[in-house]
Nucleic acid binder design. Sequence first.
DNA 1: GTCTATAGAACGATAGAC
DNA 2: GTCTATCGTTCTATAGAC
Lengths: 217, 217
Amino acid sequence: MSESSTTDTKTSILDAAEMLFVEKGFDGTSLRSVVAKADVNIAAVHYHFGSKESLIQAVLARRLEPINRERLERLAALRESNGKGELQLEDVLRALFEPALRLAGGGEPGSNNIVRLIGRIFSEPSHALQLFLKDRFRDVFENYTSAFREILTELPDLDFYWRIHFMLGAMCHTLCDRERPVILSGGVCDVESQHEVLEQLVAFVAGGLRAQSTGGK
Amino acid sequence: MSESSTTDTKTSILDAAEMLFVEKGFDGTSLRSVVAKADVNIAAVHYHFGSKESLIQAVLARRLEPINRERLERLAALRESNGKGELQLEDVLRALFEPALRLAGGGEPGSNNIVRLIGRIFSEPSHALQLFLKDRFRDVFENYTSAFREILTELPDLDFYWRIHFMLGAMCHTLCDRERPVILSGGVCDVESQHEVLEQLVAFVAGGLRAQSTGGK
DNA sequence: GTCTATAGAACGATAGAC
DNA sequence: GTCTATCGTTCTATAGAC
């Protein structure tokens, strides 16, 4: 727990693993490539983390914990500031998206990468990882689902849950792929502008959530 | 090129690889597990496909070719049947989504799996695979982008391209994850109903594409 | 076209000295 | 807490018999 003046072994392993996981995926990244990049010994990984699977979870937990904590805080703040008033859809969407998107434009070196990793984890095939994520996202999911349900009162359950799913898809895809919008737009889209990405995503998702029901029960 | 009364070696390798790629990912699937499932020899993979990378591309090409061909045919049919009339947004969305979604409810054994694989390939980190896909999707992308541009005439370029990106996100996520909607809705959503998935996705995306511009240039 | 056998390298993980 | 050395496994790929 002691602070070191230079980056310690544990942190440099996390940093190196994070970058390589983004570039090569979890299965495509060997512990040997991690220790080479971090300039530490192979045995240090097992001493500090125990196994590759535990290292993966540690890399994710380090970034997800502050993001999901801020998401909950911002939703609570929205409820408080509104008193008995109704939540506004765009406000809730910003509270959900911004903590993750901000990392992309953040100051920390390498933080640009982790955003892509966070977007990709939902489509990872590993069952162990899915269980880990289910646990990490439970509070955020439950609180935000309640909030959206309060706002979209007239939407049938069927439509509501499908649209929550589509919303997650648009968000994950946006976090995941930071090149495609620039390329396919010929440079019109600017993924480096946190404000632009956030407002565009909010507008699209809000439009999708508010669309007329397809007539389900 | 000869037809065999039973499934031949090449096809059984493709089938086995396809299923394992879905379950374990590309890097997480070894050729040894493929040949074990296909009940063929390890050397047969290299004889028929040359390398693991080529096998991956062959697995994808087998499914993508008919899907993307049908997408182009359906868009052309829409243009023809409309004469000089305007394309309808929902019609174009159905033409884009349905050829892929239909595989999920299709008759072929294993076709249920490939849908998830198709949804995941866009977030694969391999550069070689991304180049392969860019080539396979070029025609579809160009034709459908033009069609959407004709329909959404009043949308600024900035908003337009971002929304195309978000649309792909919703679609890929839907193809990718065939369990989450059922779980998070408590069984309300039915991913086995091809009609339900298609119409829900079309309604959400159409709503997002039609949302008011955020005021970009 | 299918097989056996194996090359040659990389993998995750651990034991034990310091 | 960090190191060297290494175990046992698994990997892709190929050579050569049939």
